[in-house]
Nucleic acid binder design. Structure first.
Lengths: 225, 225
DNA sequence: ATAATACTCGAACGCTTGTTCTGTGTCAAG
DNA sequence: CTTGACACAGAACAAGCGTTCGAGTATTAT
């Protein structure tokens, strides 16, 4: 015969507890206690709640810190979790230099910032001194970057071939975002848009790399032409 | 005389406590107790820790749930906090239809997903049934979207003027991302790149709107041409 | 000097909370 | 029928923890 038990994964009560923990967490900003779970899930004994909590932990739905008050958390919607706070240093546009944070800059005092789920980051760049810039104007269009976009940058003075960099061409008084390539007689700045031609820079010409682009974010909230 | 006190904002001890809470939280996934703070910050009395915690709360650096064990949280780097889990439904490319999630789709069972800080979302779209697609190929280049980009979409069958939509042109067997405009004799699909010309669609021609683009994310991890 | 603050300590109180133990009823397998 | 796993209740224990109080010591203002 078969086990026709309700053991088909999660029982009704398991789900109820899980839902309650989530709801409680949202409201109180911290997890519930065993007794609170019992009250709201119609379980009269703390041991029974503990009993289910153990099962939920074995099943991987929650994580418990034994002995610690309210020491439980859902693995459900928080398998990855943290995010990075990236300070917005200002705007980037063709005719203006690039604002970069000073070395002693404190990211927490920044008025403006964007949050990035750290799971989106290429791993290496985490926790680093990243900064963000708002793109103003359509001068970066050949970098596939539009007016209003947000670019996340990592401070850098050098770059390897193939990396997208923010450069300041002091003689042309121009800021631009391009893929960087070192060549025998100078540098090649390649637009991201493959239909456009690269800019060649001689070794004698000034070229200041200000940072490497690690991410571009575009909020499409009705702009359009 | 002047108040030459160390009362210049946060004292050394305030900062030390703040830092410890943050470090402890990262390691243990839950806040420390008053006594734990005392130990690691060289404060012998729990009342002193409580004393500082009160000040930190008044100053707005933390939030406390009195009477509740470990009931504190930083307001510092978590003024906003949660993020959205957006399931990745597949790829979007010129010659293929757009995969859209069925109405009964469970986002939590999705193997692949991207996390977006909800503070980045245009507010309206939060908690909705958003989904994401990987862009394959360079056919969306006139929408300022490149190979490898991630587009976040909201399911939709209609659109208002100026919104960027994902459409399926069944007679041309083509998927494309364009700004949508309704005109007297049909529809105008405007590329995001202003240097490119729009596509005009007669009312008689089939045009299936599959979703509205709400965000585009590009991880610049050395692609280049 | 004196008073007022700001800061620190130590200890005790008492509630909260996770843990554990004993006991009961159900249900399917042998 | 017996056995045993499973689901549940209740009570009691012990540790964890926030709170409070009394008192002492700097530091600053009057």
């Amino acid at each position: 015969m078969m086990m026709v038990r309700k053991s088909k994964g999660l029982g009704e009560r398991h789900q109820k507890i899980l839902d309650f923990i989530e709801a409680y967490q949202r409201e109180h900003k911290h997890p519930p206690s065993i007794r609170e779970i019992g009250e709201h899930c119609d379980i009269s004994s703390t041991s029974v709640v503990n009993y289910y909590l153990d099962q939920l932990e074995k099943a991987g739905h929650i994580e418990r810190d034994r002995k610690i008050s309210r020491g439980m958390r859902l693995m459900n919607n928080t398998p990855l979790g943290d995010m990075l706070r990236v300070p917005v240093m200002g705007v980037i546009q063709a005719g203006e230099p690039i604002p970069i944070p000073p070395s002693d800059f404190n990211p927490f005092t920044a008025e403006d910032s964007v949050e990035i789920a750290s799971s989106l980051m290429p791993a290496r760049e985490k926790g680093k001194d990243l900064f963000a810039l708002h793109v103003r104007g359509e001068s970066m269009i050949d970098a596939m970057i539009n007016d209003g976009d947000i670019v996340i940058l990592k401070p850098a003075q050098e770059a390897r071939n193939g990396e997208m960099v923010a450069v300041w061409l002091s003689d042309k008084n121009e800021t631009t975002l391009k893929y960087f390539y070192k060549e025998k007689d100078g540098y090649r700045l390649q637009p991201a848009n493959p239909t456009m031609k690269p800019i060649m820079i001689k070794k004698s010409e000034p070229l200041e790399i200000k940072g490497k682009v690690v991410m571009v974010i575009r909020k499409v909230d009705r702009q359009a032409a």
